[in-house]
Design a binder for these strands. Sequence first.
DNA 1: GCTTTTGATATCACATCGTGATATCATCGC
DNA 2: GCGATGATATCACGATGTGATATCAAAAGC
Lengths: 115, 115
Amino acid sequence: MRKEGHVDFIELHILHHAADGELYGLWMIEELAHHGYKVGASHLYPKFHRLENEGHLKRTEHVVEGKRRKYYTATAKGKRYLESRKRMVLELVREAFSADELQVLADTKQARRKQ
Amino acid sequence: MRKEGHVDFIELHILHHAADGELYGLWMIEELAHHGYKVGASHLYPKFHRLENEGHLKRTEHVVEGKRRKYYTATAKGKRYLESRKRMVLELVREAFSADELQVLADTKQARRKQ
DNA sequence: GCTTTTGATATCACATCGTGATATCATCGC
DNA sequence: GCGATGATATCACGATGTGATATCAAAAGC
């Protein structure tokens, strides 16, 4: 892996949330679990470290509710990388889903926005 | 990898095409290249073998235009597996894309269908 | 104020997977 | 037959994923 032009789904979820705000390990593990991804700490933390080394994530350590956590946010580079991968996801979606499925998807999203 | 509940993008592309009709190695490599995935033979063939062993793909070997090829199609199990993974993709898409992006996607798909 | 518990991060040893290079194989054109 | 071509297979190595276990800091119990 790590080859230019591949899509790692868990990485995408991480970067998506990190582009939106702060996240930390255990929270991310639960978030992924809600989506059906069974990701352990030994999978996630090394990924964080790699993404940080690559300059896609930025770490800020602080204490919340008496818990020492390492929060990550996406860097500008991380956001650009995320967008490029999202474009690849769209290509698969456009190809593999029917027009009806996409319309339902767009509708439910639109409806939620109006609430 | 190979953990229950994870999404492998290249596998998804393979299964999508295999659910639609026959495919073989070199064709799949080119198809993936068009989408920006730089996948080599040493990546793809072992994947085929694994998917076949798992009962997700079925192989039928025959000669076309004087070329001996191993064609794969998705089994019923492979199609069910594909659908379950597609649902996970939709969850990411619903979360990571804006209503406008999804509407544009649905529209372009609809337009193409009418041609 | 020391110990246990709890939330959190880190790492170890092993397995699986991805990668470039190289080998093998069957058929065609000559 | 023999080289060229399209196609599949595999090797050796590096990168990643995995379950188990360790470590760490602060809070709660006593």
